[in-house]
Design a binder for these strands. Structure first.
Length: 501
RNA sequence: GCGAUAGUAGCUCAGUUGGCAGAGCGGCGGCUUCCCAAGCCGCAGGUCGCGGGUUCGAACCCCGUCUAUCGCUCCA
């Protein structure tokens, strides 16, 4: 593990040193958990987005894309559940330094009392023949007292939660004598609340203005445009809407480099299906998405599914595609069967019918939804950290090489005159100009050729094209391949056909 | 947010008891070189994370603070 930590640090510093990722606002000491993409980072990121967009929108005739605004009507976040569900009251124990959700502490306490009741019932079961459990629960004094306690706590707890009465929650925890499972003490901090959505105001006068949230997911922009796209795109079920865009979450702690950032980018697709067919499509997208990952040529053992046992209230099936990051297997992409929850909620809150008329079955219904949701930044980190390799060469030297999939590499080809004389630079410029319209290229004439190869290795350029004296005679160049370091000689006019990405 | 660790040139780091701010690599400009980093010459690059205190004098001691990594916690 210490080794992996070391490796992860090297990856982070490589990303910075070679212009992939910089800490945000660095000259002002940085801004916690926010990062900027540099000159190569933006290329890699754009290539990832393009690879996704092509796989989803271009290859699927029944999927179209949209680009919805980050600002949305505030009621959308009430309908989606984000306003309520993403407000966790948190409390710390000062002795153990552990943090808990205040509501979970209280619920656990209630559970303990319930356990006591069950114990009584079990005991009684053994003692009496012809045991009537319902009657026992209603009449046994101890059980009745426990049950009253539960009802009392539950009622007060519900009210406190509804009123977001944080001081009241703390008082209740203290009154119930809830202790920290680790330290065993009742030395609690105040209950604090972290709203996971960033809020701002729309309108020039703050007082009269509505609170607007920066979207915490791109999915809702798709749901609220369901009707528009369905009609203008002449879509027939099953069909999908894809979107790539920024989302914002005020994470309590954002860690692990770009894995969890406060501002991040999502690639989401919502696939609308006939009710009852959702699990079939869930399975289809599960297979389709894992294939997308593996088509990059990254070994399959780096991926695994993690099926959710506990499902969110809106889902009836959910799985994560996890990737083996340097800090362990972590979620890279989520595939969720969201039922008709979102569209139904928006029907309720907007008063508009969000239904599809199925001419095959001659009925109209709220479609069920399969969602695929992947973080661009996480995908970047997956690809980047997997590609980073320190290699020991035969001569005992080492080289750092980014074995990026060629189609994602920021620079596809470097054009290098072997020496800076004899007209080689001029010839190299010609080759450069020929390739430029078709791919990102780089020209470099500084330093010994070996050093230039290493520089390209460090940013993951799959091909180095070298112009030498023979080029001047027969218009051929050498192509040096990044991973094998092998070279072959090809005519300049065949160069474009020979570079594959 | 709590705890641990760290922060000196672009990177990696040294800096003696508190006494002139250093090295290697990298970058840039040359020289050399016909194929895989570490040949030669030269140049640039520093609020020692930031703020305060102690001191004749602070990169070094003290206090505060920011940022990062890890752990706890949370998670679409």
């Amino acid at each position: 593990m210490a080794n992996n930590e070391e490796l992860f640090k090297q990856i982070i510093s490589h990303a910075k040193e070679y212009g992939f990722i910089f800490p945000s606002s660095e000259i002002y000491d940085g801004l916690s958990a926010v990062y900027d993409y540099g000159e190569y980072g933006v290329e890699l990121k754009n290539n990832i987005k393009q690879y996704w967009w092509k796989a989803m929108v271009q290859y699927h005739e029944n999927i179209v894309g949209i680009d919805s605004a980050i600002f949305m009507h505030p009621t959308i976040w009430k309908a989606s559940g984000h306003v309520d569900a993403f407000n966790d009251p948190l409390i710390d124990n000062k002795d153990s330094k552990k943090r808990y959700r205040a509501d979970v502490l209280i619920e656990d306490h209630i559970q303990k009392i319930e356990d006591k009741i069950n114990k009584e019932v079990e005991k009684a079961k053994k003692r009496f023949e012809n045991f009537d459990e319902t009657l026992y629960r209603q009449t046994n004094q101890r059980v009745v007292e426990y049950q009253q306690k539960i009802d009392d706590i539950t009622a007060r707890y519900a009210e406190l939660m509804n009123n977001t009465d944080l001081a009241g929650l703390k008082a209740l925890i203290e009154e119930l004598g809830i202790v920290c499972p680790i330290s065993g003490t009742k030395n609690w901090t105040d209950v604090r609340q972290f709203n996971l959505m960033f809020a701002t105001q729309m309108g020039s006068v703050a007082e009269g203005a509505d609170t607007i949230y920066l979207r915490p997911e791109t999915a809702q922009g798709i749901f609220v445009n369901f009707l528009n796209v369905y009609k203008t795109g002449r879509m027939k079920i099953p069909f999908g809407i894809a979107q790539i865009g920024k989302a914002f979450r005020n994470e309590i702690v954002a860690r692990q480099f770009i894995f969890r950032m406060r501002e991040f980018e999502q690639m989401e697709m919502q696939f609308f299906v006939r009710p009852g067919e959702e699990l079939k499509w869930f399975d289809y997208w599960k297979q389709n998405r894992i294939k997308w990952h593996q088509d990059l040529g990254i070994a399959p053992e780096n991926y695994r599914f993690h099926d959710h046992e506990k499902l969110a209230h809106y889902a009836n099936a959910a799985t994560d595609i996890e990737f083996k990051f340097p800090f362990g297997f972590k979620e890279l992409e989520g595939i969720h069967s969201r039922t008709d929850f979102d569209l139904s909620q928006h029907e309720k809150y907007s008063g508009k019918k969000l239904r599809f008329f199925d001419s095959e079955t001659n009925e109209s219904y709220v479609p069920y939804v399969i969602e695929t949701s992947i973080g661009v930044d996480r995908m970047f980190l997956a690809v980047f950290s997997h590609a980073y390799t320190e290699e020991k060469l035969e001569d005992g030297s080492t080289r750092v090489v980014l074995r990026l999939p060629a189609k994602l590499a920021p620079i596809k080809a470097a054009v290098l005159p072997l020496v800076k004389k004899d007209g080689l630079p001029e010839k190299a410029r010609e080759v450069m100009d020929m390739l430029k319209p078709y791919m990102m290229c780089q020209y470099d004439e500084k330093d010994a050729i070996g050093r230039r190869y290493r520089r390209q290795d460090a940013i993951g350029t799959p091909y180095c094209i070298t112009i030498d004296n023979q080029t001047m005679e027969d218009n051929t160049v050498t192509i040096r391949e990044r991973d094998s370091m092998e070279q072959k000689r090809v005519p300049i006019k065949e160069l474009l056909a020979d570079i594959k990405f």
